[in-house]
């Protein structure tokens, strides 16, 4: 391939530079193309995707019952040990002893949101919440107890 001549080089160079400038100029004169989100201002309307993994939550129904049987599948499935389940023996109405959760400890600071615990749960007791504003000034606040005080397992969930 023949090298372009002196003046041709200048012409082509200036042309290529002007092409680039035209492009940035287009965006400069078209502020509607702006693509940034005004985050703290749009908090009211900001909705995360429904599958977005922000934290592990344990839904409770209106009678303060959850679906966790304390089988510890999630604890085993968690690759980095951010779940710790403390169980207790509960005596039910028929006088039988049954395993139930005492505290469901969730270490948000260690969690990588890999979703493996949710997949592992046989009773769909836990799911991923969409909250993402997790910043706190005290690290101990990231250690959460997911089962609410006084809650118990929904009857029929085995």
């Amino acid at each position: 391939m023949k090298e372009p001549g002196y003046f041709k080089t200048i012409y082509l160079s200036v042309k290529s530079l002007l092409t680039g400038m035209r492009m940035t100029g287009y965006y400069f004169t078209h502020p509607k193309e702006t693509h940034t989100e005004q985050y703290p201002d749009n908090r009211a309307t900001l909705k995360m995707m429904d599958r977005f993994r922000g934290e592990v939550i344990m839904p409770h129904d209106e009678t303060n019952e959850h679906r966790c049987t304390g089988c510890q599948s999630c604890e085993i499935a968690c690759p980095n040990g951010s779940i710790k389940i403390i169980t207790k023996q509960e005596v039910n109405a028929e006088g039988k002893k049954k395993k139930a959760i005492d505290t469901w400890v969730y270490h948000l600071d260690m969690c990588t949101m890999c979703n493996l615990c949710i997949v592992a749960c046989p009773t769909d007791a836990i799911k991923m919440g969409q909250k993402f504003e997790h910043s706190v000034f005290d690290k101990s606040l990231l250690k959460k107890i997911l089962n609410e005080p006084g809650s118990k397992v929904k009857s029929g969930v085995e």
Binding site: Y27, P31, T36
Partner: peptide
């Protein structure tokens, strides 16, 4: 501001 508008931000 010039930089921002050229870079599709505010």
């Amino acid at each position: 501001k010039v930089a921002a508008f050229m870079q599709i931000r505010l």
